[in-house]
């Protein structure tokens, strides 16, 4: 360990510290904005799936997840008693899909909203799209029960063109989400 190495390490450390400091400032400025956007997005998605404007989280016990093929992130109950919203994630055709499923007290789906996904653009990604094709796909889930299935399996849901995997995983997840609410009772 000679002087030169120490000097080099010091320079590198100094530059890292400067960069980290600048990033800290930028992060401080951007942080509230990002959090605010996340909240807005979540609330917007919640109000799409359930007719309510305020929600409170439901405490879950392990028995609510037993044997479920999706991972439940949280369950929110609408304060006006119109039902529950299940936030869950599961694997689609390309990666993890995070979705919000609204379920009313009769254990029927009231709507779905896809929060994040990495499906193929132009095919599976249509499931989350704001264009007509996406809206039509998602509206098929309104009013379905836990027995929901794709049309080719004898159910009522028409799959998206070229995206059977995405469609069927969304359908399965809706069915599982309804079962989760059922187990809460």
């Amino acid at each position: 360990m000679n002087n030169k190495t120490v000097k080099l390490a010091f320079v590198l450390f100094l530059i890292c510290a400067i960069v980290a400091g600048i990033l800290g400032v930028v992060n401080e400025l951007a942080k509230t904005r990002i959090a605010q956007y996340q909240d807005e997005k979540e609330l917007k998605a919640l109000s799409i799936v359930l007719p309510a404007d305020s929600f409170s989280p439901v405490k879950l016990s392990p028995k609510n997840f037993m044997g479920k093929k999706i991972s439940v992130i949280s369950v929110m109950q609408a304060d006006n008693g119109s039902g529950y919203a299940v936030k869950c994630s599961f694997s689609g055709a390309q990666g993890i899909i995070t979705m919000l499923v609204g379920v009313n007290n009769d254990l029927k789906c009231t709507g779905i909203s896809i929060l994040s996904h990495s499906e193929t653009s132009g095919l599976g990604a249509n499931a989350a799209s704001t264009a007509e094709v996406g809206v039509n796909f998602r509206s098929q889930f309104e009013g379905v029960g836990a027995d929901v299935a794709l049309a080719k399996k004898g159910g009522t849901i028409d799959a998206l063109t070229g995206a059977t995997i995405t469609s069927s995983s969304v359908t399965n997840a809706v069915s599982e989400a309804i079962r989760v609410v059922e187990s809460i009772g």
């Binding site: 093929k69 694997s91 055709a93 390309q94 193929t120 995997i165 995983s169 399965n172």
Partner: peptide, 8 residues
Amino acid sequence: FSGMSIFG
């Protein structure tokens, strides 16, 4: 392969 899904 993209059509493959593993264990449901």
